[in-house]
Amino acid sequence: MGIYLPIAEISVNVFVLLAMGAAVGFLSGMFGVGGGFLITPLLIFYNIPPAIAVATGANQVIASSVSGVLSHMKRGTLDFKLGGVLLAGGIVGSTGGIYVFAFLRRLGQLDLFISLLYVVLLGTVGGLMLVESVNALRATRSGAAPVLKKSGQHNWIHRLPLKMRFRASKLFVSVIPVLGLGAGIGFLSSIMGVGGGFIMVPALIYLLKVPTNVVIGTSLFQIIFTSAYTTLVHATTNQTVDVVLAFLLMAGGVAGAQYGAKAGQRLRGEQLRALLALLVLAVAIRLAIDLFVTPPNLYSLSALDLN
């Protein structure tokens, strides 16, 4: 069944989009990430113009994050204070990102920049996670207890000034890295159409040493607001948010997410992380191939923005 997308201005198949949303929702529910890093490249592979894929991806991330946050709120695994500080940084980063986005679009380098960012970030995060989780899997097999947080272990981040106490996370840390992390994620959110969960989750665990059970809820909580802000700014400056497209993806996504969350409970933490790492790496490799392989069309057309 075809449907005409009012903003993307093309006809697409409803069932393809619903299935795409459901599949990504399943994975995002399973791994506790928003799924933006999968949705946006998938939409681009499906011929949705990258600018619209990015803005609509940000919109879609809100739905899956709200869905996820509700279940974390019920379990009490959410640090509102930490989320709030991350968010403050996120708004600043996101605003900067929108300007860079519009600038690159004018230059004709937006698509390349999006792809490069995806390859570099997904490649790095995926690679690091894979190494870590494989080590953890090995350790469990050899009988040693998995150690994620060693108490008393501090790195340079913990020596920064302006310390703040985050009770729910059992954390006493400087606000500088928290704000910086929020800003970085906000920047990526507006350029890549991702919530940033795939960076936020490992960063909170490994850099700030936030307990793993609080990380996902808190990350999803701040992603709701960062992507809401990104959606709003894209809607007002670029008019690239397609609600029909977003709604189809969300409808599939929220259903898939709840099933995914259940499936995720049957797997152990390090197994989940290893699978997520493989998934992230697969997307990175797929995008990297596109950068290096001779494209079928060397020429591309784009409308000229008069202003």
């Binding site: 994050s65 709200v66 279940s71 809401a228 959606t231 709003l232 894209h234 609600v243 929220v254």
Partner: peptide
Amino acid sequence: LYGIFAISLAMLTGWLGRVIFRKD
């Protein structure tokens, strides 16, 4: 207003999805 609408729609969908399909 369109942006606000898109955000509200997403939040509503997320909440409804949780209510309808909850598995825990």
